[in-house]
């Protein structure tokens, strides 16, 4: 009886430890050498490609299934602001920059479950073709749970992250995604 209890306990514990560590690793840990950072943004160079390692494949399957390979699109994700603090759903943020070097780009906010954030206004994203720029070409996008007049992406108090998609990125971006000129993310006000 004591042996059986230990066996069941051991198997349960092994399953729990194995599955939870696999999920956490695939979702959060970027220890593979193909992950690069650029300010608050990170990208996996092998995402979607046939050279992806097993951890990259698992991460893409959980957090970004059906991604395109790097020659077609580069996906940057920001879970932190430019100061290194985790994005907080109770704060508003300012994303400021110029157009990244790509045929088309978009910035989209996602809830913690990796789906679009439920908002009646459907302000899910801002893109190269929808963003309003100042005369010098600089744009300011606001991430906030409360509505803004323009360039607004709705966020969730429950938490969120942001994805920057670059479709048909320029050759210099493909060559060195860590050196691409990408917008900054600055915390503004917290409730």
């Amino acid at each position: 009886m004591w042996f059986l209890l230990r066996l069941v306990g051991g198997v349960t514990l092994a399953l729990f430890l194995g599955l939870s560590s696999a999920y956490y690793t695939a979702r959060n840990v970027g220890f593979e050498r193909f992950i690069v950072s650029n300010g608050p943004w990170t990208t996996d160079l092998t995402s979607g490609g046939v050279d992806a390692g097993m951890y990259t494949r698992a991460r893409v399957a959980i957090t970004g299934l059906l991604a395109l390979n790097q020659s077609e699109a580069i996906y940057y994700i920001a879970k932190r602001d430019s100061a290194g603090d985790t994005l907080d759903g109770n704060c508003s943020y300012r994303i400021e920059g110029r157009d990244p070097d790509a045929r088309w780009w978009s910035i989209t906010a996602y809830a913690n479950d990796n789906f679009l954030i439920d908002t009646p206004s459907h302000n899910y994203s801002v893109s190269k073709t929808s963003v309003v720029r100042s005369a010098d070409g600089i744009f300011v996008v606001r991430l906030s749970p409360a509505a803004e007049q323009q360039n607004w992406i709705a966020t969730s108090p429950a938490g969120f992250d942001v994805m920057l998609r670059l479709y048909n990125p320029g050759a210099t971006v493909v060559k060195d995604p860590s050196a691409a000129f990408l917008p900054s993310i600055t915390k503004e006000v917290c409730s």
């Binding site: 092994a14 399953l15 430890l17 194995g18 599955l19 696999a22 690793t25 951890y55 698992a58």
Partner: peptide, 9 residues
């Protein structure tokens, strides 16, 4: 646990 981790990934 290591085996389960590897198989899951």
């Amino acid at each position: 646990a290591a085996l389960v981790h590897w198989a899951a990934i």
